[in-house]
Amino acid sequence: MTLRRKLSVLAAAITVLAVIAVAAVLHAVHRTDRKNRPRPGGPAVAAGPVSLGTTAEPLLMFRNLAWGPHRDELATVRAADPDGARTASGVKCLRFHAAAGTGICLRAEHGTLRENYRAVVLDAGLHERATYALPGIPSRARVSPSGALVAWTVFVGGDSYAGADFSTRTGILDLRDGKLITSLEDFTVIRDGADRSAPADANFWGVTFADDRVFYATMATGGHTHLVRGDLRERTVTSVHTNVECPSLSPDGATIVYKKRVEGASADAPWRLYALDPRSMAETALAESRSVDDQVVWSDPHTVVYALPGDYGADLYALPADGSGAPRRLTTAAVAPAYLG
């Protein structure tokens, strides 16, 4: 082939490839317009006043995934009527949790070189109290029952195509003095009664608070996950159980519900929900046959609520925490729930 011939082949190929590439981008831009229009049959969403403060009746707050102008905004529904009309707040978050008038909102902002992620602490009026730059993609968020502590977990890494190796970073922020613990890896690990520094491969995620000193979380090392009880004053984490991820402590402190890798499950859907009594260490399987990849929240001392993949991204389900009953769908197109009031 002559050079002229090669160049015309290249020019023709570039033209075809450019048309495909531009069409792909335009298609995605057009989809943006579609997603900003409400879909018929979807949940009704309207902008309105939203607050984290005490309310006349209990509310359920979550990230609204329904198509329309309020997609990805925090929205509330009456806890007694979770599938009813939604009130959208105008505040966008990827992950969210709230307790006692404090909210934690993890969000993404498109930057030039990469995505930028922030943790934003919200007051009762959903105003920003403080913001922190996050080192990775938001995964979990929690507020302590008193509203004094917030915690988050993000995914870090996977930057090189060759090394799709992810790790987690967990941060705990004390709002009373503004002190931020960016890495639980500095805590002393107590395992089998012996103290040691955290292993190099230790990863922490999914904090749940008992009070403003004690918390539970997942620690992974050597290919195994551990339920650890953390002490913020002593700066220790103690391994109390294995094969536990994303624990969630009940309001009365009597039960921890978590996702557990079960044998025989497909690698695609490896987790099932279990409940643990931290005093007797008795473990009970909950009546959900699907794999759950979420950190549950408690709607009352006997019921947990969690998200499962759905048509709009995710739907919320409720399930008794004692192994009885069956899952009940609360609402569609919602994720990252928290109960208010």
Binding site: I137, F155, G157, G158, G163, A164, F166, W205, D293, A314
Partner: peptide, 28 residues
């Protein structure tokens, strides 16, 4: 091309597909 994919892949897995990518290390 490959770094385009690498740059958005973690976000796609977590935010787009809603997956937890922690198991990847083993395969690696």
């Amino acid at each position: 091309s490959s770094e385009m994919v690498a740059a958005v892949l973690p976000l796609y897995l977590v935010a787009g597909l809603g997956l937890s990518p922690l198991g990847f290390g083993l395969l690696d």
